[in-house]
Write a protein that binds this DNA or RNA. Structure first.
Length: 522
RNA sequence: GGCGCCGUACCCAAGUGGCUAAGGGAGCGGAUUGCAAAUCCGCGAUGCGGCGGUUCGAAUCCGCCCGGCGCCUCCA
């Protein structure tokens, strides 16, 4: 039982062993903040948030870095279009990005370095590459010379002579088409920084090499990002860093699958677009791909509609490397699963009188191991222990959160079954027996909480389910419940059903139980 | 054209050589309920795109074919 991780570089699952025992450094490529975030930007953060939680649970001390690209051609273009500064564009969209991360429960990032705050390190890095002969200056631009790197292309498995490379007017100054810019000379009016090659700004890839080195070192454990970044971004990062340092940059390259928009899923491929020379953004729309110009807006609306927890659940129910069709219906479908858990948590509170969210639980794997036992004489706890093992086995297999989640569903069923069979929602007969049973329920539920926490799920009560007694809505609903109870007592079911149906129509669901009627918002 | 990925029940989806092919959603029976809702129990792919091959044994490996998608240009 040990962790294995799929490595894009070797295309195999490898046993996980960090460079320094007990410590793990992770660098995830974050967004270029020129427009508001879309769902695709959330995939990596949610997955790596779970990865970090799991590694921490397994006893590692993890440092997780997510960069913010706040200088770039598109940022400049957006600033010009809106007539504001590039810094202003970056600030707005960074705030939006952070807001969305928070909504999805991503709060384990240790550092979020910005490119513009590391210009000195970037320049130093470029100077080193020039000094070592891997880069050349051309008219204020600096390019990386891909022909000097014998291993260039090893991550994405392609050869330098097959590269078309970045186009534009700068292309004429390159020695080879595949060469890429480390430093771009500034045109009039563009944001710029002083450098040995004149005023300019960093190219796209160099910031990650420079910032990861400063924070995590020349070689670090895990580098992540979307599959679309494998080439050219990560290939180029890898080339820069390994040529500069003469050693591996990253031990494990992890790439997550991309999201597709539900409405347009399954249409035109990239190839034909290219041959037809179609406008890039139009082609993206047709392909149903979620990206910058498209997709924006969908995220905020979906968070508002379903809540961050359900979105997070949706992202973690499939394997991180698979592509996913994203849309209102798929999220709602996943959300139905979330409701099953939330209902159990309410049931748990009715039975034990304490909140699920207040339950103490094991924060470390060994701690949890000590608290569970598959050979327990208690049938419930034996089942829970087996399900916990299934969960951890799945996570050990390249963070298979989808398979792990199946164990969570099994657990909640076991727990519900136990409550029914032990009749824990009915008046207690044998007080001593009930105490034993409630204790077993509490221990089993604590294990569920322990595992859910690894995925960052169910850490706090959902806001939409708030129904405080002093809330006006709560008072009114309780009044209606009382009226309805009287009607039911008098067998006036026409009235009682009208109350229930009409409340359901405005989004309030009543459920009759032995101890009384409960309600929840839909 | 180059480099890759995928095709599992009505839908989503795990499983990548060997117990009865996870789990979720929807559906259908049953328990429960005044009726519901929720929950529990049960049912649901003799089959994993198609055809061959390797093997004692394949959804899992190999070949071909069909279909879908990604990257090769900015992209999480």
């Amino acid at each position: 039982m040990s962790l294995r991780v799929y490595n894009t570089l070797t295309k195999t699952k490898e046993p996980f062993a960090p460079l320094v025992p007990g410590k793990v450094g992770i660098y995830l490529c974050g967004p270029t903040v020129y427009k508001e975030a879309h769902i695709g930007h959330m995939v990596g953060p949610v997955i790596f948030d779970a990865v970090k939680r799991y590694l921490t649970y397994c006893g590692y001390h993890v440092t997780w870095v997510v960069n913010i690209t706040d200088v770039d051609d598109k940022l400049i273009a957006e600033a010009n279009r809106r007539g504001i500064s590039m810094a202003q564009v970056a600030a707005e969209n960074t705030e939006d990005y952070l807001k969305n991360l928070a909504a999805l429960g991503v709060d384990t990032i240790d550092q979020m370095p910005k490119a513009t705050k590391h210009i000195d390190e970037i320049i130093r890095f470029i100077e080193e590459l020039i000094a070592k002969g891997f880069a050349y200056v051309a008219d204020g631009d600096v390019f990386f010379d891909v022909t000097r790197d014998r291993e260039y292309g090893k991550l994405s498995n392609r050869t330098t002579d097959s590269q078309q490379g970045e186009g534009g007017e700068a292309a004429s100054r390159k020695r080879s088409p595949g060469d890429f810019a480390l430093w771009k000379t500034a045109k009039h009016g563009e944001p710029s920084w002083d450098s040995p090659w004149g005023k300019g700004r960093p190219g796209w890839h160099i910031e990650c090499s420079a910032m990861s080195r400063r924070i995590l070192g020349e070689t670090f454990d895990i580098h992540g990002g979307g599959l679309d970044l494998v080439f050219p971004h990560h290939e180029n990062e890898l080339a820069q860093s390994e040529c500069c340092h003469g050693k591996p940059m990253v031990k494990y390259w992890m790439h997550n699958g991309l999201m597709k928009a539900a409405a347009a899923a399954g249409k035109v491929g990239g190839r034909s677009d290219r041959e037809q020379g179609a406008d890039a953004s139009a082609a993206d729309d047709a392909a149903g791909k979620i990206s910058r110009s498209k997709g924006a807006g969908g995220l905020a609306a979906l968070i508002a509609k379903h809540g961050g927890e359900k979105l997070r659940f949706f992202l973690l129910r499939t394997h991180y490397r698979s592509t996913n069709v994203f849309g209102d219906e798929p999220v709602a479908e996943a959300g139905a699963g979330v409701d099953t858990f939330l209902r159990f948590f309410e049931r748990y509170e009715r039975v034990t009188g304490e909140s699920f969210y207040a339950l103490p639980y094991a924060k470390r794997r060994e701690e949890g191991d000590a608290q569970t036992n598959a050979n327990s004489t208690d049938a419930l706890l034996a089942d829970i222990a087996k399900q916990r093992t299934a969960f951890l086995t799945a996570m050990d297999d390249d963070f298979n959160s989808g398979a792990a989640m199946a164990a969570l569903f099994d657990m909640v069923r076991s727990l519900n079954r136990f409550v029914e069979q032990a009749k824990l929602e009915e008046p207690a007969g044998d007080a001593a027996l009930r105490k034993t049973q409630v204790d077993a329920l509490r221990r089993g539920t604590a294990t569920l909480r322990e595992l859910a926490a690894i995925l960052g799920l169910f850490r706090a009560p959902p806001k939409t389910n708030a129904k405080a007694d002093d809330d006006l809505v709560g008072k009114l609903v309780n009044l209606l419940i009382e009226v309805r109870a009287t009607a039911r007592k008098n067998k006036d079911f026409a009235t009682s059903d009208k109350v229930r149906n009409d409340l359901a129509a405005i989004g309030i669901l009543l459920e009759d139980r032995k101890e009384g009627t409960t309600w929840m918002r839909k």
